[in-house]
Design a protein around this nucleic acid. Structure first.
Lengths: 129, 129
DNA sequence: ATTTAAATTGTTATAATATAACAAGATGTT
DNA sequence: AACATCTTGTTATATTATAACAATTTAAAT
């Protein structure tokens, strides 16, 4: 694992500490005091962090979350659960699921090496309410 | 199934005829001759069409595709394959896959009623090249 | 140490995607 | 007809993301 550059480290630290996915401009506002002034600086760091698997993008929310799944260091196979009320996002770490999807073949016999799965529902807390 | 309104019908027809997912502003440019002038008119129709399951949003592409899967009229469980070269998108219709995902429970025993899965790979054509 | 290539940064401007807020008209139901 | 709901039209604005260009830093190779 290569070391992160200055901007990459600043932005990764912020995302890693956050209990919730962060959006690019939220990140920008939070790192301006550290000298990162422009959107592009944020997006470039995000691109790289996604590429090396340190973070994932929640596509349906345009938000970024740190990877807490040691098995997905390739950043190619991601699965999340998203609470539709509180928007809490959790990375799903299920050997069964990832095995099933990794082996899934469609009608044409096509195999996929990369996927993104987003489950929607109610989290424990919001279910109770 | 309720009938579509004028704008909804115009926009659905366009998406339904398209061999590829369409983006909101591409749709806008293509329906301006029919009197739909503003982005909001497009987004409102898209929202409704998604809601009633006539189209799906490809989240990773910000694009919309007509539903060609008779079994997902609730628009709650979608799976697509996306070619990373030509960007061709196909809706996956696999009883096994949908059954597996519908029954998937995470560690907390949580069941999800809705999901979106996007597989990435190379389509037949692009694989050959 | 110097060269070199690659990666990273900084900066301004702009493109692309999406919603807020308000007013009016159409439609369906009782 | 009265009512509620859905749909439309319109302007303005918010949010998300990239283009284009130049300079600097880093790492590795010689």
């Amino acid at each position: 694992m290569q070391n992160l550059s200055k901007n990459q480290q600043i932005i990764f630290d912020l995302i890693d500490k956050s209990p919730e996915p962060l959006k690019a401009y939220t990140i920008l506002y939070n790192v301006q005091k550290k000298g990162i002034k422009a959107p592009l600086q944020v997006y470039r760091a995000l691109d790289k962090l996604v590429e090396i698997g340190k973070i994932h993008k929640i596509e349906s929310r345009n938000a970024f979350i740190a990877c807490h799944n040691s098995s997905c260091r390739v950043a190619k196979a991601t699965a999340f659960s998203i609470c539709e009320i509180c928007e809490k996002v959790t990375e799903i770490s299920s050997a069964g699921l990832s095995k099933y999807l990794a082996n899934f073949k469609d009608k044409d016999g096509m195999k996929y090496i990369k996927y993104n799965l987003e489950f929607f529902g109610l989290c424990k807390k919001c279910k109770v309410k």
